[in-house]
């Protein structure tokens, strides 16, 4: 880089302008960086399951698993989530023709402790998904590392199951994340619910 030659401008004016523009440049660059971050985190891709009639936008760069068999339709996980990989999942259960979401929630509460370690329910609240009635159940459990050679402390996980019924099916939308970042990352789930069609 070639140093500039002395000019006949006012030195104090030049220093003042440099100092101001340095701050302006830094603030501008940071604003662009945060905008880029927001766009990257908010970017999504379309997921479509024509067999089960589910269509939604899921976060781009997340790992998608559609091999859940009867357990789930699909599961999307944030590979960079620490210590728990943020999860969004959709599953379908067959219910009776006169079943309502509350019946499914009761069933989930019953089988919860057998599926998840130290399972406990925090709240059960009526909700809506679009124009449909839904019930939202918030719970927690403790996830322990299954591999004994990986020395890791158990993680407290918080989850939400949003249950809606469609004919003789109950669709369960699940969001799980580490307790500490549950609220911080919840916007992924909200964005997902805002775009889901079933």
């Amino acid at each position: 880089m070639r140093p500039f030659e002395p000019e006949s401008t006012n030195p104090s004016r030049s220093i003042e302008l440099n100092s101001i523009f340095a701050i302006v440049t830094a603030v501008g660059m940071l604003a662009l960086g945060l905008l880029m971050r927001s766009n990257t985190l908010g970017s999504s891709i379309l997921f479509r399951d024509q067999t089960n009639g589910i269509r939604a936008q899921i976060p781009a760069q997340w790992l998608l698993d559609t091999n859940g068999g009867t357990n789930y339709i699909f599961r999307a996980e944030d590979p960079n989530g620490q210590p728990f990989k943020t999860l969004i999942q959709v599953s379908i259960r067959t219910v009776g023709p006169d079943a309502n979401p509350q019946n499914v929630v009761d069933s989930l509460n019953v089988i919860g402790p057998s599926r998840l370690s130290n399972y406990g329910v925090l709240s059960t609240e009526p909700s809506r998904l679009g124009e449909d009635e839904a019930i939202e159940i918030t719970y927690y459990y403790v996830q322990t590392e299954p591999n004994p050679f990986v020395q890791a402390v158990p993680i407290v996980v918080q989850g939400v199951d949003l249950v809606v019924t469609r004919g003789n099916q109950a669709i369960i939308f699940t969001y799980r994340d580490g307790r500490d970042v549950f609220e911080q990352n919840r916007f992924y789930f909200e964005n997902f619910l805002a775009t889901v069609e079933y």
Binding site: F4, S12, T25, A26, M29
Partner: peptide, 18 residues
Amino acid sequence: ELAINPNGPFYWFPMGLS
């Protein structure tokens, strides 16, 4: 450089930062 030659262009510090 700007301390030694204070007549520099107004974008000298922003350029250095970037």
